[in-house]
Design a protein around this nucleic acid. Structure first.
Lengths: 109, 109
DNA sequence: CTAATGCATTAGTCAACGCTAATTTATCGA
DNA sequence: TCGATAAATTAGCGTTGACTAATGCATTAG
């Protein structure tokens, strides 16, 4: 129920190619500002800010203001609902999912 | 690149709550007809057929016509691009973040 | 044969969405 | 202090997308 809403938010947020590209770029970077994200994005700064707002509301990114800059970073927990959803509903591709779980387990210190 | 298009298709297809519910129901069933899917879906039969078309084009379901019925079933490989996409970013996290305990706890309780 | 059932498709409607341009607020440098 | 930069926000616009209602096309039942 509550979780389904979360899955819905994550799915909807990552469905847009531009917004997903922004997210991927944030993940690839350690921390990145809005101007840097705007560079080479193909859209205006305002659009980027809107996408960041969506990503933040979905719990996929977090922000750290510093002076007049705002640094964004990826929020690892944000994708958890997506993993859970796949665990619940995808019955047949257990092998691949098991591999992902194994990979994530290896990271566990 | 080619795969990114696939991820895009899967994400976009599963983003809609109604269509995702249809997919979930197909996964839960072994095989299921359009009328059965329409039952309790809250939308018309035409809408269901449209969603099924999207799901089929995204490679998430397959069909088996039998008489005037058409049985739909889940396509195992359909979610693979999504799993792979997440796997890629799990690797990124592995390199960049030391602590993923929270995520792991949610995934594997 | 005729009526009914299962499904796909189409046109049309309405709301949601992504984008731009412009404005606003806040902060930094000269 | 003043101009420039960073970021968020808003209104407005065009597009996409989900839905209904209606139609068409098979197939089955009576």
């Amino acid at each position: 129920m509550t979780q389904m809403t979360t899955v819905d938010a994550v799915m909807r947020t990552l469905a847009d190619p531009t917004r997903r590209a922004v997210f991927e770029r944030i993940v690839s970077s350690d921390e990145i500002t809005v101007v840097d994200l705007t560079r080479g994005s193909g859209v205006t700064q305002g659009a980027i800010s809107q996408h960041l707002k969506s990503l933040k509301q979905a719990g996929l990114v977090a922000e750290r203001p510093e002076g007049r800059n705002v640094f964004y970073r990826a929020e690892p927990k944000g994708l958890a609902p997506l993993v859970d959803w796949m665990g619940d509903y995808a019955v047949f591709w257990r092998e691949r999912f098991a591999n992902l779980r194994t990979l994530l387990k290896e990271i566990d210190p």
